[in-house]
């Protein structure tokens, strides 16, 4: 038996590689499945809290404030919204449809009471709080049950939203 490459080095072993790999059939559950099936048709579904009427998007099936189930009722939302806050990203990341540097934004969709984190295709010097934006979708024939159907948001020609309309989401 000839010595292995590791043996030939004669250096002590000081680090142990312990890779972990587990296979799952991941289940989205009722609420996320409803959301994903809708987005495959270009619809954005939120859910309304029965206690205070706030609309959660995306919904995880229960109100994280009140701990009550949202049931089966869904609310269709616009793909237009308001930028609540933003950040300029200069380090690379995976699965982003925009080149560096790009803008990440918290968008309050019209009709929603929770923010959506996404990216914005705009000049860095133009982005600002209150800016009105709309989703840019992939070509319809490429839609799947995935949030990746929305590539990014883009500014639209509407007056800025009033601060009062989004201040609680900052």
């Amino acid at each position: 038996m000839s010595p292995s490459e590791a043996e030939k080095t004669n250096q002590p072993v000081t680090v142990l590689a312990c890779p972990i790999s587990l296979d799952y059939a991941y289940s989205a559950g009722q609420s996320a499945s409803r959301f994903l099936r809708a987005i495959a048709e270009g619809k954005l579904l939120g859910q309304r809290c029965p206690v205070d009427g706030r609309v959660y998007f995306p919904s995880r099936g229960a109100c994280p404030m009140h701990g009550v189930t949202f049931g089966d009722d869904a609310v269709e939302l616009s793909d237009k919204g308001t930028i609540v806050t933003f950040s300029i990203v200069r380090v690379p990341s995976q699965n982003i449809a925009l080149p560096l540097p790009y803008i990440t934004v918290n968008v309050l969709l019209d009709g929603a009471d929770t923010i959506l984190i996404h990216v914005l295709d705009a000049k860095l010097e133009d982005v600002h709080m209150g800016m009105r934006v709309q989703a840019v979708w992939k070509p319809k024939e490429e839609w799947t049950t995935s949030t990746a159907n929305i590539l990014y948001f883009r500014p639209i020609d509407e007056p800025d939203a009033k601060y009062e309309s989004y201040k609680e989401h900052i």
């Binding site: 000081t14 680090v15 890779p19 972990i20 790999s21 799952y24 059939a25 989205a28 996320a32 049950t145």
Partner: peptide, 19 residues
């Protein structure tokens, strides 16, 4: 009670442990 969407998912970590 609509059937939930499922997707294959492999969870991997490339841990290296000091000895």
């Amino acid at each position: 009670a609509t059937e939930a969407l499922t997707a294959p998912h492999t969870l991997s970590y490339t841990y290296k442990r000091s000895l």
